[in-house]
């Protein structure tokens, strides 16, 4: 047993637990925006940790894995931002517990003018 494979597999386990909790958040949260919060944050860190752990296990793959990590860290927030913008444009409401919605106020002001 080599130490780098043990360390890598433990990091991978941590990342997979974050991925599982993110998916649980996507399943349990009450509305689209909260779901997206859970989904984006947990999948970004979870994928980064999982891939990094595998890169430590097989250190000859580290370069490829780092390129994948950079790609995911750059594109994941952008795709979630595009989805959130589209959903708000379409008029999908926030959950009933919400306290404020400044963007909607702004849009209705623009309609009146």
């Amino acid at each position: 047993m080599s130490w780098n494979s043990l360390l890598g597999s433990i990091i991978t386990l941590l990342g997979s637990i974050f991925l599982f909790l993110g998916a649980l958040g996507v399943y349990r949260m009450p509305d689209l925006y909260n779901r997206m919060q859970a989904g984006t944050k947990s999948t970004t860190l979870g994928t980064m940790l999982t891939l990094l752990g595998i890169g430590i296990c097989h250190y000859e793959w580290l370069g490829q894995v780092l390129i994948l990590i950079i790609f995911i860290a750059l594109t994941n927030p952008i795709s979630s931002h595009a989805l959130a913008r589209a959903a708000h444009f379409k008029g999908i409401p926030l959950t009933a517990k919400s306290v404020t919605d400044k963007l909607k106020e702004e849009e209705s002001k623009a309609e009146v003018l």
Binding site: R28, N34, S42, L94, K97, V99, T100, K104
Partner: peptide, 21 residues
């Protein structure tokens, strides 16, 4: 991530959401 994990595993999810400017 720790924040999200702590919110998700509670039986009633503690949220107070809204959109701010």
């Amino acid at each position: 991530n720790i924040d999200v994990a702590l919110r998700v595993i509670k039986p009633v999810i503690p949220i107070n959401p809204g959109i701010v400017k």
